[in-house]
């Protein structure tokens, strides 16, 4: 009897139809939150008006709404909703890829220092008054340097790689965060400093439609190899020798995954500043629902991360009369939730 019970409890992970049903469910959830985010806000918009306004872009519809409505939808809400969806999905899938590749469910773009490195690069870019493209490139390079340094440190601690990764991550993050503090110290207090400070807290309040392309291009470049190689990511979770014996070039694959994940993280940090916890919590949640297989967890984590961040961003602009930076809210939600997951795992 107990045997039967344990079988049913894991059966769904193997049922080939199940991920399809789940995927459909998450797509519906995504669409629901996507539209919900348009309706709510300080300027309420009726669902019918939204549909009319959106359709008016494709078909000719006699405008029965004030022009403010169109501005709110396309200039204010659309960029925020799109960017939160893209960033949420990208951070989640980066975390998911990093975790498998480092064979460690406790790592994420934050833990590995990628976010801190990318943050330093971007703030340096703002300080130096670089163009958007150069700032993003600098952010990516610093993020990459951070991951490479952390990987190098953990490699030196042969028998304690997990500890090495986490301690290395703390150390490298701390160095880059100090670097960012130094940038803030020397930044112009009227212009650059407020820009850096507010952006570092993690916010999408000032995102414009023109920012989306800086987000979407690097994210597509980073995401594509992860989607294409999602089956092989499963093999990276094995011991190095085993993975190689099964016929994969682990060194090349690891480089590709680091490149892709870091590029996505840096692009996100470049646009939204530091939004923590998404890359750690969502992958955990994904595995709880769909199992470890990357063929299923990659699409589900993207949808779940997108939906989560859209929802949190909508909350950040509606729960108080002011605007709560997104990074603060994701920490308030992410940290306790992660603690719950840890205790739950510990009890097993």
């Amino acid at each position: 009897m107990s045997n039967d019970k344990s079988r049913t409890s894991v059966d769904f992970r193997h049922d080939p139809d199940h991920p399809v049903t789940l995927l459909a469910g998450f797509i519906i959830l995504f669409i629901f939150i996507f539209f919900l985010s348009f309706f709510v806000g300080r300027y309420p918009i009726k669902p019918i008006t939204l549909i009319k306004v959106l359709l008016s872009k494709i078909f000719y519809i006699e405008p029965t709404w004030p022009s403010t409505v169109e501005n709110v939808i396309f200039k204010i809400r659309m960029p925020r909703i799109l960017s939160s969806a893209i960033i949420g999905g990208a951070l989640s899938v980066s975390g998911l890829a990093y975790q498998g590749m480092f064979k460690n469910p406790m790592v994420s773009p934050d833990v590995l220092g990628t976010s801190a490195g990318a943050g330093f690069g971007a703030s340096l870019g703002i300080l130096l008054g670089l163009s958007y493209f150069s700032t993003s490139a600098l952010s990516f390079i610093c993020g990459l340097v951070a991951v490479i340094l952390v990987t190098f440190i953990s490699g030196k601690l042969m028998n304690q790689k997990t500890l090495g990764l986490i301690l290395g991550g703390i150390m490298i993050s701390s160095i880059f965060t100090s670097g960012t503090s130094f940038v803030k110290l020397v930044a112009d207090t009227d212009d650059a400093l407020p820009a850096i400070t507010y952006w570092l807290m993690g916010s999408l309040a000032s995102v414009k439609m023109s920012d989306i392309k800086f987000l979407i291009i690097p994210i597509i470049i980073g995401l594509l190899p992860i989607i294409l190689l999602r089956w092989k990511l499963n093999l990276l979770t094995l011991d190095e020798d085993e993975a190689m014996s099964l016929g994969i070039n682990t060194i090349l694959l690891r480089k590709v995954v680091i490149f892709g994940s870091t590029l996505m993280t840096a692009a996100c940090v470049g646009v939204s500043g530091h939004i923590g916890w998404v890359g750690l919590v969502i992958p955990h949640f994904t595995r709880m629902i769909v199992g470890c297989d990357y063929r299923h967890s990659v699409p589900i984590s993207i949808l779940m991360g997108s939906s989560f961040l859209m929802l949190v961003d909508t909350l950040s602009r509606t729960v108080t009369t002011g605007e709560i930076p997104l990074g603060i809210l994701t920490s308030f939600i992410g940290a306790p939730f992660f603690l719950y997951l840890m205790i739950r795992e510990g009890k097993k």
């Binding site: 992970r13 193997h14 498998g100 460690n104 469910p105 499963n234 979770t237 094995l238 470890c292 297989d293």
Partner: peptide, 9 residues
């Protein structure tokens, strides 16, 4: 494996 795969996978 740190990650728990099914026997089939």
């Amino acid at each position: 494996n740190t990650f728990d795969y099914t026997v089939f996978d």
